[in-house]
Design a binder for these strands. Structure first.
Lengths: 161, 161
DNA sequence: CGAACTATTACGTCGCGTAATTGTAA
DNA sequence: CTTACAATTACGCGACGTAATAGTTC
């Protein structure tokens, strides 16, 4: 679970509004003819074309083709946002596909989506807390070794952070 | 990240004592002829034989062979503990190998080696402290999102650990 | 004899990265 | 003609999982 890009996690306070926007985009499809090219999306969300193609192969995205070239609607864009969000939470692409499909089936996706986010963030938080505990253990060990060597070399001891 | 056996993470308060134990085990090797079979280790640390073989292929473990069958000393066991700990921290096996080689140099005499160990442990400590900081950041973000969803769903808030 | 353990070899998985090659538009 | 993207095909990686097959010991 690395850093969350601002595009994916836009100013955390407005998360609720952003969520509704995603839902709206997903419903509207492309009335305003707001379409995106591949590099456009890649720059916007810091992903590679390879990744987009991969998601397409796995059935997570299905942009239209104009003359062979991929053209993404606003709905596709919204799905990409959902994909990237779920990825940060440690979901596999298969799980994300389930999530997206389930979402497309019932019109009422919002409640389920929220529950999913709740579940995933709960799990992610638990994992990170565990990791931190292990880091603390390793730090203790390393400080012991380090200080032993320092003692041997006649250097001053390290101080705990 | 699945369940961590208590042997790998022994009751955080006694981390210091445990750390000394690991160091001790690593130095002693097998005075008491305390040897372990493959399934024994697998059960103890919840790893598969395949994983142990894989670590061996990569040069992280080198158990003795008795009649073709792998036999692990206490030192091997200690190395396995270190491997599993480092893995949870997100280190690659290649990195872990460096880390283990560094442990191996710990007992042996020369000053150059000591200086190397000092350098490596200093670096490792700095890296871990950085990782810890990142984890704290991610945890803060996740807790905000999580609590927002909980609010929306009318659930009680999470409490910080 | 079979059951339970071991071993090696080798191909499958996931989420892409990274060419290599070809095509099309400006 | 070059530059800049677009596309497909396909092999590579890391950390194992998962047979398939064969040997050893009880």
């Amino acid at each position: 679970v690395r850093g969350l890009s601002p595009s994916v996690s836009p100013s955390t306070e407005a998360a609720d509004a952003a969520a509704r926007q995603v839902v709206a985009d997903h419903r509207d499809d492309d009335r305003g003819a707001e379409l995106f090219g591949v590099t456009e999306l890649c720059k916007a969300f810091d992903v590679t074309p390879r990744a987009l193609r991969f998601y397409e192969d796995k059935g997570l995205l299905s942009p239209r083709r104009i003359n062979g070239t991929r053209v993404y609607s606003r709905r596709d864009r919204a799905r990409l946002v959902l994909i990237l969000r779920a990825k940060v939470l440690g979901s596999s692409l298969a799980e994300i596909k389930q999530y997206l499909d389930m979402y497309g089936a019932h019109g009422e996706g919002l409640q389920e989506q929220k529950r999913y986010v709740l579940q995933r963030t709960d799990a992610a938080i638990a994992e990170l807390e565990e990791k931190r505990a292990h880091i603390d253990n390793s730090l203790a060990e390393l400080r012991i070794i380090n200080n032993k060597v320092r003692e041997y070399l006649g250097l001053p001891q390290r101080n705990a952070t």
